[in-house]
Design a protein around this nucleic acid. Structure first.
Lengths: 110, 110
DNA sequence: TTTACATGTAAGTGTTTGCTTACGTATATT
DNA sequence: AATATACGTAAGCAAACACTTACATGTAAA
């Protein structure tokens, strides 16, 4: 993972670890506390905290304090850079081609 | 970057480095030799080779030998895992919401 | 007001990255 | 045949990663 100059915001680096992607996936369903999240992993709780910190630094999640627990919340808009980058390749997707093909075949039938 | 058990195929790790993303972007336009690619970067040519090796291991590019040069070719389908993962979040995109809103306002006008 | 709980942070460690320079190898050119 | 070109690979190294255990802090419960 390449740390950017401000030491933050590296979304691509943040999602490069499968555990962190899985954490984001968990947070799609609902905000969750660290312990709840940690329950889904085998690594130690501090390790989970550290991963969450990376997600936080990347802006992919936010923290809410609720009493003595902290709930993490997904910030899906921060996945924008990934989505935009991948969109450059849209013309290559199979279903895009299929859509084109369908349109073409439809046109040829008309 | 987390190396999978077979030591390969880690697409998310492969695209986590900005230089590697830029290399893929270059290869969208055309197949290119290592030197051509290296011309776009400040790092040494061997460093570029090493990045290309990572892309190759991830299946994101292929090699073609042409005389004494090797041309690298994009394999865009291998970006599928990224696209699929990001698609899980589609409901959160602004334009998705905008599309929904448009539909709703259209419906309310009818 | 002790005690338990939820969590972050520090320190330590082995492993992996990302880069460099030096060198090896195959193909073209002269 | 000798040389130049286009690469890959090896070795070395500083920095970053990913994890662990131990500890600090703040809040809730007894």
């Amino acid at each position: 993972m390449v740390v950017s100059l401000d030491g933050e915001q590296d979304v691509f680096g943040a999602i490069s670890h499968p555990a962190r992607r899985q954490m984001l996936d968990l947070l799609v369903e609902a905000d969750r506390s660290v312990n709840t999240i940690a329950g889904h992993f085998q690594m130690s709780r501090p390790a989970v905290s550290q991963h969450l910190r990376i997600l936080l630094d990347a802006g992919l999640v936010t923290e809410q304090r609720h009493g003595r627990e902290r709930r993490y919340r997904l910030v899906p808009q921060r996945l924008g850079p990934v989505r935009e980058w991948i969109a450059h390749y849209e013309r290559f997707w199979d279903d895009h081609l299929q859509r084109l093909q369908k349109q073409l075949s439809k046109r040829s039938k008309e």
